[in-house]
């Protein structure tokens, strides 16, 4: 199921600067009793999880445990699925984004997203980045903004001579970085990434991972991955979700949430330990 072998040693980036000490952290998100259901069946249940500013937070866990569902509830992408229903609260800088009078469009302006499958628009490379800027009225110095976003996404050098060419001519890894550029061009506060590298080859994956280290200085990043080495490499904080079986099927729950090294080396919960050491079952 997961791409990694049974008991692969997990390396944790040592050189990484220590995450802000617990007391200095500022929560961007705080979910309270968050339950997301499709129809009547909950997909993830009762999640309480703070997400901190300028850190990379990884969400790991087996397939179907509700990682994507949880992530999509952070910028109200689940609104697009008619059967999806959200209970509980998602506090974003203290404000419940599911509260009365909150405009999901405004929420998404601040909380961008990169999807599992690269999804560039059927437009030129330039227009892929410029489109969101135009829509949001950020039209001053459009060229400069596009260039900066592409540079930040480590794509500028590869595309600067073909900006007017169609985006579908790029490789998968380039397309994904274009989607990242598109997301950061509009200067969001948070970028959500749902298995952004799962469709990419190892080199492209490394590029995306390197980028995350760069980007967290400016953004708060939340990444879903089912590749544990990836989580270990990029994340400051890691949340482990698992599937809790019930008579009526099962739903995802948050098992443990802590600093990444702790999750991977001395987790508190047996289930976490089983998962990170590959003895998941």
């Amino acid at each position: 199921m997961d791409t990694m072998g049974a008991v692969a040693p997990i390396e944790i980036a040592q050189a990484r600067e220590a995450p802000l000490s617990a007391s200095d952290r500022e929560a961007v998100f705080e979910t309270r009793g968050l339950t997301v259901s499709y129809g009547k069946a909950p997909a993830v249940s009762n999640v309480d999880l703070p997400i901190y500013r300028n850190l990379v937070t990884a969400i790991i866990g087996p397939s179907g445990c509700g990682k994507s569902t949880f992530l999509r509830s952070l910028n109200r992408m689940n609104d697009l699925i008619p059967s999806a229903k959200v209970d509980g609260e998602v506090l974003y800088h203290g404000q419940n984004i599911y509260g009365d009078g909150v405009d999901p469009v405004e929420v998404r302006r601040r909380i961008g997203m990169v999807f599992q499958k690269p999804n560039p628009f059927p437009k030129s490379i330039y227009d892929n980045v410029a489109w969101g800027l135009r829509v949001l009225g950020m039209k001053d110095d459009l060229d400069g903004r596009v260039e900066r976003a592409l540079t930040q996404a480590a794509l500028w050098d590869e595309v600067k001579n073909r900006l007017k060419k169609g985006a579908f001519g790029l490789s998968g890894g380039q397309q994904q970085r274009l989607c990242l550029a598109r997301a950061i061009a509009v200067e969001p506060d948070v970028v959500l990434l749902d298995e952004p590298a799962s469709a990419l080859d190892p080199i492209a994956t490394t590029k995306i991972e390197d980028l995350m280290h760069e980007l967290k200085n400016e953004y708060t990043l939340v990444i879903v991955t089912h590749n544990m080495q990836q989580a270990a490499r990029v994340a400051d904080m890691t949340a482990f979700f698992t599937l809790e079986r019930t008579e009526s099927g099962g739903h995802g729950v948050l098992v443990e949430y802590d600093e990444t090294p702790k999750i991977f080396t001395q987790p508190d919960d047996k289930r976490t330990e089983g998962y990170v050491t590959g003895r998941f079952g």
Binding site: R109, V135, V186
Partner: peptide, 8 residues
Amino acid sequence: EGALALGA
């Protein structure tokens, strides 16, 4: 979704 996620 890509478009809406940008705040369109």
